[in-house]
Design a binder for these strands. Sequence first.
RNA 1: GCCGCCUUAGCUCAGUUGGUUAGAGCGCCAGAUUGUGGCUCUGGAGGUCCUCAGUUCGAACCUGAGAGGUGGUACCA
Length: 489
Amino acid sequence: MTDSPAFRPEPRTPRGFQDRRARDLRVEREILAQVSAVYEQYGFEALDTSAFEYADALGKFLPDSDRPNEGVFALQDDDEQWMALRYDLTAPLARFAAQHWETLPKPFRRYAYGPVWRNEKPGPGRFREFIQCDADTVGSARPEADAEIVALAVAGLEAAGLPRGTAVLKLNNRKLLNGLLSAAGVADDHQKLAVLRAVDKLDRLGADGVRLLLGEGRKDESGAFTKGAGLNARGIEAVLAFVAAGGGSRTDVLARIADVIGGSAEGDEGLADLSRIDVALKGLGVAEDQAVFDPSIVRGLEYYTGAVFEAELLLDTVDEKGERLRFGSIGGGGRYDDLVARFTGERTPATGFSFGVSRLAAALRAAGREPGHQARGPVVIIAFSEADMAHYFEVAGELRGAGIAAEVYLGSSGMKAQMKYADRRMSPAAVMLGGDEIAAGTVTVKDLDLGRALAAKVTDNQTWRGERPGQATIRRAELVAFVRRIIEG
RNA sequence: GCCGCCUUAGCUCAGUUGGUUAGAGCGCCAGAUUGUGGCUCUGGAGGUCCUCAGUUCGAACCUGAGAGGUGGUACCA
């Protein structure tokens, strides 16, 4: 079965993908378990859809024959139809909702999590495959539906390990800026989008940088020029005054926005929406420090039609080298009333929130909030001799039956290496059942944590070997109870 | 996508003006210690010097192209 002997494939993870081991997985699974419980409490049902979608259902990046993989991983099925791996969970939801609209309970509330794929240049903390977790309501245009998504996001992040004060949900409404721009005579959609992109960079570039981007454009330190939105001076100042209207309670912000935005129909609508969201949030018990109105939150996406949300981490974070790290947004969402209409032709209001699970886990780690417990290995049963394997498996069975993770060492190395193996697996204990013990009806159990602690004080090898720290020989019948005591500390 | 920097052992990195056999620390394996993870000592394994082409008597080192990584920037569902 070997190929040409000269060929040795290099074992490596594909670019932008990653292997995740027990330590990372347990944190991520814990987050998902906690968040799922919260989402279900809020009345959202679980949904899992396929990894592949027909490319036309994903919308924006339709593969054409020249560049079928732009942005997405796509392939052509044997019936020549283009299929693509989903790049988020919102587009598949829109497809699902459109497909089953007649039979769904409406409004349809669902949460989903799973891998999504993006075929683009990977960067640090930016992968081509990652786990996303979404909750959405389809079929309710009420601002209260947005408010509930916000409340759920706040509760979800808290359950995921970010207690109150470590994160804040910021919200805004697209209608406000749209109304402002319309009133200023900006009708062109491209120009509006350019304004949104410019505002989106406020936290990074500051008001002066954004001012340039709203106008002619901006040259950055590397000399690259970014074309601006081309607003006139009055328009620029109006937008800047609007985005600066944040701060203080939600009521304060609303009052300030009302001053700045100055009566366009769409703007007034946005204000009314936010006001109703505020009332609902108060009823839902979402405090002023948990969810704030922030006019500078726009989200770069085209498809948002009303409320937009962004969850921001308030903790100081450091990377592996101890350098300060800006994490910024750890989740976001908003209202997208036109997405389902792509399939049905009927405007179907929808709103949702999503976050990257690995990213949140990385944020928790960077903030030193990673759930402390390390991934523990099984109790390792030392294998002394071929002839006694049956005894070892008997012990493994007993421990497993008692709900204790256990395994018989199945390598071919000597005892020293076996102890090392148990050490490396972070096993709580090693069980020794050699010829002596079997003959005497006893078993020797070593508490590896205790042994490690005791070993730190021993410098002399003779003592170390003589004392056998953390180790006890007990009657065979006491094994399970003894091991359980070690594990439970 | 564009601009800068980087690429030598599993990891972190040395490597003289271009000169013979490319090193260190950590890690790994083994022994000292017939049945004990730590410490210490001893030994060992491990390298297409990112790839290809060129310059040269001779390239880890110089030149070019490409790949990968990284930092900005753009885009971001």
